[in-house]
Design a protein around this nucleic acid. Sequence first.
DNA 1: GTCTATACAGCGATAGAC
DNA 2: GTCTATCGCTGTATAGAC
Lengths: 184, 184
Amino acid sequence: MSRTVADRAAAIAAVAEVFREHGFEGASLSAITARTGLGKGSLYYFFPGGKEEMAEAVLAEIDGWFTRAIFSPLRDDADPEAAIRRMLRETDSYFRSGRRVCLIGAFALGDTRDRFAARIAAYFAAWRAALAEALMRANRPEASERAEHAVLAIQGALVLARALGDQAVFVRALERLERELLAE
Amino acid sequence: MSRTVADRAAAIAAVAEVFREHGFEGASLSAITARTGLGKGSLYYFFPGGKEEMAEAVLAEIDGWFTRAIFSPLRDDADPEAAIRRMLRETDSYFRSGRRVCLIGAFALGDTRDRFAARIAAYFAAWRAALAEALMRANRPEASERAEHAVLAIQGALVLARALGDQAVFVRALERLERELLAE
DNA sequence: GTCTATACAGCGATAGAC
DNA sequence: GTCTATCGCTGTATAGAC
């Protein structure tokens, strides 16, 4: 069994890493075949729509993960403060303390924004709304403002950490956010 | 005179917009010839090193602009508070209140980071250091922390504003920064 | 389902006339 | 300095055998 990837779900995860590292334009089909271990034929069998469909699938998968791990708890957890702390913990772990880039944020900056505008906007709007909801439930003032600022700070921290090659920037930003978000 | 671009300096400005809109990989030579009005021959006459040299020139030009308009005043202006306000004003205007993307930030997220790592890191480090210097001269506490947070928040605001297609996000972020930076 | 072979368009870059 | 023509390569995508 020399196959690297067994099914569509595993293929999506592999493709996601290629997009994350090279962006949409930069992710060549040959890079994708190399990473997934699938030939072009198999790739087009799973994703008849080509690269565009692969990117759609990747965005949907990321959105699903964040919804389950972060957005839903922020909206529904009986303890909103705990959900906020969980958000920060999961965010740190998902982005590998700043070593990993946000694919959706990167897509937002490039040509890709127009192509996937709806998905990109929905992801960030959902994050901001869920966090605002948790802050309101936790009786913190200026919930919307704090939520928007937190989402934006996470994206900025990823940019700056990568630009400076210093993941400590990201870790510091999350620590600051914990203080700011939960302050009375 | 059907020429669009008369000299190297004007060519750099035109090329910068193409990189800003399409990224490094996405900026095809034919898009660049279209925007500059120069044929490939002329382009390679100005930039013998091809796309890589064009990008170098663009990064240097942006770095120079920020140094003159923002970083130097932050370091040297006799009134550091005025320099900080000027930074926020120039930042708003440079990024067209969030409609324009930060080319250097976008480069930092992609494959391009490794290629231009030194320039990218230098730009952000200079901004952070100059702002910290101004905050210290203005006797504000936690100057380094505030400066890092401000630089990161500007980048994040650009990402989020573009992702949501809502420049108000960027404007709000700058207003918040003015309050936070200048608070005693 | 997976592979190899291939089509063909577009890429970055160069040559050389003007 | 600027242009057009062209090179060689890689890109996405498809066809068809297995």
